[in-house]
Design a protein around this nucleic acid. Structure first.
Length: 289
DNA sequence: AAAGTAGCCTGGAAGC
DNA sequence: TGCTTCCAGGCTACTT
């Protein structure tokens, strides 16, 4: 499931495949996979200028549409603000691939964009949890999820990070998963970073020392950067835009290892549900404080 | 305020 | 073999 390192990898591998290409048609195969005030067809004529990431969102920046309104100029069907991009949330099973001309959609293809060179861009999503959203000033303004996204973990200082959690009385894992508090962290990297920092998933922010929170910051940054180095973790559906699997799943120390031995102390790793998510931790190395 | 739960959705694995 | 059940997981909405 794509979290920050996986989305980063997808963006990096996808950019050279679609940059500077112009969209000639946009086809929605599953209506629920497109959301927001603009119809998907409003990206037609746009040229991909760059790709980026915000939280777990992949962002496709488009140029050439600035002065283009909707066909009837009304909000909800076309919009009047210039469309300048496309946001994609892959959730669990979303994939972004580029295919050669005339490739037919697959059974789980939800959106097809055709480029002027004939290549095709597919948004596949078996479970239909993900979505694409046409971006403009208006679209971003009314997008509560976008407006509420917390800071990027790789773009904040140690003290910013400490201040984010030190005064909060909620469980650490729950907070790491909360995109409004910090953006881009999902179940895998929450468990892995808490293990590396020796912090119990249910420890409250207020119960941790500054040193412990600093250690968590370092652990989170390290685990995210190491995973980016390995092109992310492939379990189940995730692939890079080139179709390759990542390798970071081989470096998991706790995720998916309930019942196995802790790599640090040898004790049996404990599995359970914390904050509504499957959670694995070491009861010896991660004491609740 | 925090935390639990249902719901969205479907494929793959496990159990019978 | 073929059926049913369970599970995964990001996020929202609702309840406790």
């Amino acid at each position: 499931m794509p979290e920050l390192p996986e989305v980063t990898t997808i963006v990096r591998t996808l950019e050279p495949l679609i940059k500077n290409k112009t969209i000639t048609s946009a086809l929605t195969l599953h209506a629920g996979s497109v959301e927001g005030p603009h119809p998907l067809t409003s990206v037609v004529g746009g040229t991909v200028s760059a790709l980026s990431r915000r939280g777990k969102l992949a962002l496709i920046h488009l140029s050439g549409l600035e002065g283009k309104g909707g066909t009837d100029g009304t909000k909800g069907t076309g919009g009047t603000n210039g469309v300048d991009g496309l946001g994609v949330h892959l959730k669990m099973t979303g994939r972004l691939f580029v295919y050669e001309a005339n490739t037919p959609p697959g059974p789980h293809t939800r959106v097809v964009l055709d480029f002027s060179d004939g290549t095709r861009f597919f948004f596949d999503d078996a479970r239909k949890f993900g979505y694409m959203r046409v971006l403009s000033e208006e679209s971003r303004k009314e997008w509560a999820f976008w407006q509420g996204l917390g800071p990027e973990p790789l773009e904040m200082t140690k003290s910013d990070f400490v201040n984010l959690f030190a005064q909060r009385n909620a469980g650490m894992k729950s907070m790491l998963l909360n995109q409004k508090i910090i953006a881009g962290v999902g179940n895998i990297y929450a468990d892995e970073s808490l293990f590396r920092a020796g912090i119990h998933p249910q420890s409250k922010g207020t119960s941790l020392s500054t040193a412990q929170l600093e250690e968590l910051h370092e652990a989170l940054v390290n685990v995210l950067e190491e995973s980016i180095q390995e092109c992310g973790a492939s379990i189940r559906d995730y692939r890079t835009a080139r179709g390759d699997a990542g390798a970071f799943q081989n470096a998991f120390r706790v995720y998916g290892r309930a019942g196995k031995a802790c790599v640090a102390c040898g004790q049996t790793l404990q599995g359970g549900v914390v904050a509504g998510r499957a959670t694995v931790f070491c009861p010896h190395c991660q004491r609740d404080s």
